[in-house]
Design a binder for these strands. Structure first.
Lengths: 205, 205
DNA sequence: TAGATTGTTAATCGATTAACAATC
DNA sequence: TAGATTGTTAATCGATTAACAATC
């Protein structure tokens, strides 16, 4: 029986990976400890060790973790050894910003397609990419086996586009539309709604 | 002793509020139930009732909740009765997108200041707002008692700007910088890093 | 009345933390 | 060796769910 790893554990791994990369690249460190990493992330050292223990033994008593090795292992665990091709749906202001975002490269992702339904935008160039007609969504995604999409369309269009993405074989969607999306089992959705995030904080103000 | 309400409960309230508004505005419904709301959000009805029970009794046996009343109560709980003035730090692509985002209005927020340190951008107009010199950050925020900031600057500048925001009285920060920010007790930070969100999903692919 | 649905309690489930033997 | 730190166990803490009396 394969042990089921909690999603909350998975969700912390990218944050560990990000901080480890920072330690290596910007501070030139070679080793670290669960205590140091936890300090920097506001997480207990016990939690970091427990999280990692789901996947193996990556450290050494007395000396902690070799950063390069742990980065490598986390990239392996998170399936980041190969670059993922990503489709961006929506060429509005936010789509524009994401198309120009430098942070995708070297962290495992590359936006290779942009779609919109606005004839004014179709054919436009965005950071080297041509905006395609959304009518060609299915054929392009299926043919290229795209598994990941970023959804940056109005709430009113989000569910319909989601259904089309899923039908075309997409199994991971990062949505900026302010709406809960219905997807079948096995399709993963992650949400980003700045207003929801702000409203969570105003409770405390 | 005031009962401490779990942050995870608080984090769901904006989602309830958003869906209730959709039910009212787009479908013209007047009443709903924890079951219906849960169905639409992929949350159990028991959890919705439990969450709401932390704050009072808002429903009626047999008939459920009056949507308008529950919306009103949630807005009260989340301190959304008055519009919050927000400062946007960073006038790059993402800052541009946020400055033009229509979703803030009517959901409790208004971007009233934009700052950048790039002389090329200072003075530029963004959706009716003038980009200010970041050197004037402290005076503008303190004088206008701005409590909320959206941080859209490079990771290398994020901690320094955060320190300045906190010193100027900001107590809620929505950060798009891919870095964990150190803030004193009482200051709230919410993060949005698209790469972290994508990496969480690639584990399952 | 009969059916529906709430708010709440208790049980279950799951996540975090503390502690420590092992060992580098 | 002495000090540091891991991986793991058990205890604690917290969140979710199931069930149901109350009642609209």
């Amino acid at each position: 029986m394969i042990e089921q790893i909690p999603d909350i554990v998975i969700s912390r791994l990218p944050v560990y990976l990000r901080e480890l990369t920072r330690l290596a690249v910007e501070e030139g460190k070679v080793n670290t400890s669960s205590h140091e990493l936890g300090q920097r992330l506001g997480i207990s050292s016990a939690q970091i060790r427990k999280d990692l223990s789901h996947f193996g033994e990556f450290g050494k008593q007395g000396t902690g973790y070799h950063i390069g090795y742990l980065i490598d292992q986390l990239r392996e665990i998170l399936n980041l050894k190969e670059e993922w091709q990503v489709a961006l749906i929506g060429a509005g202001y936010l789509g524009h910003a994401l198309a120009h975002y430098q942070g995708f490269e070297h962290r495992g992702f590359h936006i290779s397609w942009v779609f919109d339904n606005d004839p004014q935008k179709i054919g436009e160039e965005m950071n080297g990419l041509i905006v395609r007609d959304i009518a060609t969504l299915e054929s392009a995604l299926s043919k290229n086996q795209i598994k990941i999409a970023i959804l940056v369309v109005p709430a009113s269009a989000a569910q319909e586009i989601t259904d089309r993405l899923v039908a075309a074989g997409v199994t991971a969607i990062l949505s900026y539309a302010p709406i809960h999306l219905k997807v079948p089992e096995g399709v993963h959705v992650s949400y980003s709604d700045p207003v929801v995030q702000l409203q969570r904080m105003t409770f405390y103000l």
